[in-house]
Simulated scan of single mutants.
Amino acid sequence: MKRIAVIGTGNMGAPMAQNLAAAGYDVRAFDIVREKMTLLAAHGITACSGHAEAMEDADLVLTMLPTAVEVNDVFDRHTVSHAPEGCLVMDSSTIDLEDARSLHGRAGDSGFGMLDAPVSGGTGGAAAGTLTFMVGGETAALDSARDVLNAMGSRIIHCGGAGMGQAAKMCNNLMLGIQMASVVEGFHLARRVGLDDAKLYEVAYSSSGNCFSLTAFCPVPDVVPASPANRDYEPGFSTDLMLKDMEIALNAAELSGLPLEMAPLAAALYRRFSEAGYGGLDFSAIFRMLEGSGQ
């Protein structure tokens, strides 16, 4: 593979495109928000005027878009018309499992290979090229894209067939969202009874309370230097995105007839915070809401 079309150059798509260009790929990018493409040329990326120009002669079309609405629109209105037959389509957005499965079917019908390959690692991992890719699709398709994935990530996990990358992502983020709710309540309880934030962190970090929500997104300031709490909750992963991912998981559970107990409670916290106008803050900022300053 030599030429890659990147559709969606936001907080995740732009650094992913930059790492592909740094690895020697001919990267041609497009985003409907033109301002998001202004810095790409400095990284050797061609900022295109539209989908057709970006996809012309592409070996791989990579989409990194906000929701399934945009993913389906790009595929149905642009990829089918402009990407060359035999091109590999790889979607790294986070979308509903059924949408991912449908996309695989439509891609096959149109003569394209297809991978659903959502990511974990956030904007920091995207910039550093250390993302984890959770991949769903045929082994042959993954093998053909492995070098491309290695240019953007440090771990590539083949989770199974069509849609299984999205299945892994939704289950992982379901756990992350619940973890954050527990971490937030732990710190609130610690403060109420007089335990210092740093001391709770020290104990939890080296004990059974340790988790990614604690170490990477510690919701209290002045404990973990890289935590969004130290930047007034400027997002590494926004509340609205967490809510979207939680709702994807809840929808999948409902469709499969599985009752969930903790996930609806955690999702309700993120929904309340978002509806109060704070959806753009990091998901760890529910700490502020629960202590009263975010209401």
Rank of each mutant, 00 (worst) to 15 (best):
A168Y: 07
M180W: 08
A126H: 09
M152K: 01
Y201S: 13
D116M: 01
A107D: 05
A126T: 11
V224T: 09
A204N: 07
C211M: 03
G163K: 02
A216M: 08
L142M: 01
F112L: 10
S206K: 11
C218K: 05
M134Y: 06
T123Y: 02
G125E: 02
S154I: 14
M180G: 14
A198F: 01
V183C: 09
M114D: 08
A162H: 06
I157L: 14
D147H: 08
N210F: 00
L115I: 04
H158W: 00
H158T: 09
S182R: 12
G165E: 08
G113C: 03
L176F: 03
A126I: 14
S144D: 15
T215M: 12
G122F: 02
N230H: 07
G121N: 07
Y201V: 15
G137A: 13
A107C: 11
A141R: 02
G177Y: 07
L131G: 09
G121E: 01
F217H: 15
G113K: 05
N150G: 15
D196Y: 08
G108D: 12
D232S: 14
S110F: 03
A117S: 15
S110Y: 05
F112C: 13
C211T: 10
A226L: 12
H158K: 04
G122R: 02
M134C: 05
L214W: 00
D196C: 04
A168C: 13
V119C: 11
L176K: 09
V184I: 00
D143H: 12
L200V: 03
L103M: 06
T132Y: 00
L103K: 00
T215V: 15
N230P: 03
N172D: 02
Q166L: 13
S227G: 02
C159W: 02
Y205C: 13
G186N: 06
V183L: 07
K169Q: 08
H188W: 05
N173D: 11
P225W: 01
L174W: 07
A141E: 13
G161E: 02
F187Q: 12
C171I: 12
V223Q: 07
R146A: 14
G161Y: 10
M152D: 12
L195R: 00
T139H: 01
R155N: 14
N172P: 06
M170G: 11
K199P: 01
G124H: 11
G111W: 03
G194D: 02
G163Y: 00
R101A: 09
F187H: 08
R146V: 15
D147T: 06
P225I: 13
E138M: 12
C159V: 15
V220C: 10
G136P: 13
L174D: 12
E185Q: 09
A151I: 14
V148A: 10
D143P: 14
A229E: 11
D147Q: 00
D116L: 02
S208E: 07
P219M: 06
P221D: 15
G108P: 05
G108V: 08
G194N: 09
D196G: 04
D147A: 09
N173W: 05
S120N: 04
G161N: 04
H188A: 15
V220P: 02
G160T: 11
V119R: 05
A167K: 07
S110Q: 13
G129R: 04
H158D: 08
L174Y: 08
V203M: 07
E185R: 10
S144G: 11
H104V: 01
G163F: 04
M134D: 00
L214Q: 05
C159Q: 02
V148M: 07
F217G: 10
I178T: 14
L214K: 00
V203H: 06
A167E: 04
